[in-house]
Write a protein that binds this DNA or RNA. Structure first.
Lengths: 311, 311
DNA sequence: CAAAATCCTGTAATTGGATTACAGGATATC
DNA sequence: GATATCCTGTAATCCAATTACAGGATTTTG
């Protein structure tokens, strides 16, 4: 099973967004499978390979190949992951509203982009790196947050507030000089969180290098393979396509914000009982939303529901 | 004892509670399977029959019999249902485990809350008001943005950048005094964008009132029925539940950001050909990736426009 | 423009997981 | 104590899924 033409990416958390993300790279037959799956996601979780192949009009091995291409180890794995994704998506992303006016369609476009960015972030999340980042920040005596450029400024501000509320001493800098100066007074036991989608801001990279040389743990939320990713000790990699057209809002902010929220929540948990209680409430809320899904049921004792009736 | 020993109940939606409920009626071997499954629900979704039988210390057919007893038609069916149940029920099932053991679970909770907030915003969007807001801001000679409180600061910053990039003269204030001072020098032809989830910040309300009294058009993105909503000429109503627990990230930021992005994009469109081209690209991008939501409904046109390239 | 290489995709074979059939054994009941 | 019933494992069978392979299409290069 060595040496496939297309590398198999790690197991996706959000399979639907993964399928969309790689669709362009799929072969024609595989794309037909993707279309067949997209035509009825729900059914795809119950079909056999032969049935799905029939719907897509391709051979059975093409279905298996499709599953591998979207990051699953087997068809069975694909079905499990799809079922999981669908449950989550059904609970959170369903909207029945149809917009007929221009403004409504505009809003829908923009917001779906935002939602997709969050899902894309979830899909490609390196949970190990994220765990390490949480660990590092939770254990820090003091945290410096660096971000540069217009887009990052508000993110940095947001991250600062997030961690500040947890009672962690935190400073945020969007200015290169100030960031470097602050980095120079860090000590072992301190931590840095650097945020940059491009990963190429020289000032941030230098500030991170300085902080590292003084013994601080450096965490970067950025694109892999960039100078910033090289400079930081812990990298949470995140590739979000940037539209270089300044008029179009970049959805990467949503992705970064979501990652930051996750980090903050993880740190909250690490900080003891108070944080854990908060976390429990997050989970409770999540589960409650699940309950809200309208579903014909025959069992009143059931606490939570997935999708409605099958078929 | 008439009839069959155990009737096969209908397909369960919440498999976990079903297992617990029927456990007393299971045979010893089946109960061992139940115990093995309960020991690690997550793993059970990936195991083969042989592996699960091994863990339970029973034969493979006993596993199949167990699946039937809990209402599933087959082992495969059991796995799919279990995976579905786990997704929704993760919060309850894992209460005893350290949550950060599974960063992915945490990320999924946090990020789906974010996506959900965006969806909620879209669902309740008042497109007429949004259109009026876009109209007002696009026609303004100068725009002041007001926001108050920790959560709004980064939003205001973000909105400022957004509009700034469109070439609109824009100022942002998160300080009450400064906001009021700035409002006092506004003139007819200027516009104010006030952002507040609570709508109760006295400083913002006053600033908006001042701006209005000097002839500026006032737009508020806030909760309806609040003082701020009363004070502003144009209100884009938005009700997002706030969790008052400061440790939990509030997803309302995502909703507000999405609305602001929509406004900014709409303004861009109004500002001429360049803006319109940008907008076309947004829509195109969305259309190509926007297949988005798996929905029980069979109507694929609900969520996406022009996804037609498929065949 | 021709030739070669690479990639795609279906057919066929094989593997192995899941189910069914069956029989031995335990338990309860009369 | 005998019988009937139910439980559970072994073995056989079936079928879904994967792998191997080859033919054909497309692209690249000389």
């Amino acid at each position: 099973m060595a040496g496939r033409k297309r590398q198999v990416e790690d197991a996706p958390i959000d399979l639907v967004s993964r399928i969309q993300r790689v669709e362009a790279r799929l072969s024609p037959a595989e794309r037909q499978v993707a279309a067949a799956v997209a035509a009825d996601f729900e059914a795809a979780t119950r079909l056999t390979i032969a049935e799905l192949a029939g719907r897509a009009g391709v051979s059975q091995p093409s279905v298996t190949r499709f599953c591998r291409s979207v990051g699953c180890s087997s068809f069975a794995d694909f079905k499990i992951r799809l079922a999981t994704t669908l449950t989550v998506a059904a609970a959170y992303l369903k909207t029945d509203r149809v917009f007929s006016d221009d403004i409504g369609q505009l809003a829908q476009s923009v917001m779906m982009r935002a939602a997709n960015a969050v899902r894309a972030a979830l899909d490609q999340l390196d949970t190990a790196a994220l765990g390490a980042a949480i660990e590092a920040l939770a254990g820090a005596r003091r945290i410096d947050i660096y971000g540069m450029g217009g887009g990052s400024a508000s993110l940095v501000e947001d991250a600062k507030l997030r961690l500040f509320r947890l009672g962690v001493p935190v400073s945020a800098y969007v200015d290169g000089h100030q960031a470097r100066m602050s980095a120079a007074v860090l000590q072992p036991g301190d931590a840095v969180l650097a945020i940059s989608n491009s990963g190429r801001s020289r000032a941030i990279v230098e500030a991170v290098q300085i902080a590292g040389s003084f013994g601080a743990v450096t965490v970067a939320l950025t694109r892999p393979g960039t100078p910033l990713a090289e400079a930081a000790a812990i990298v949470v990699p995140m590739v979000i396509a940037e539209d270089d057209n300044v008029l179009v809002p970049t959805p990467s902010r949503y992705a970064h914000m979501a990652v930051i929220d996750t980090i903050a929540t993880g740190v909250a948990e690490r900080l003891g009982a108070r944080g854990r209680e908060a976390l429990r409430r997050v989970r409770y809320t999540v589960a409650s939303i699940g309950v809200a899904i309208p579903t014909p049921s025959t069992d009143p004792t059931v606490l939570m529901r997935g999708r409605g009736v099958r078929e």
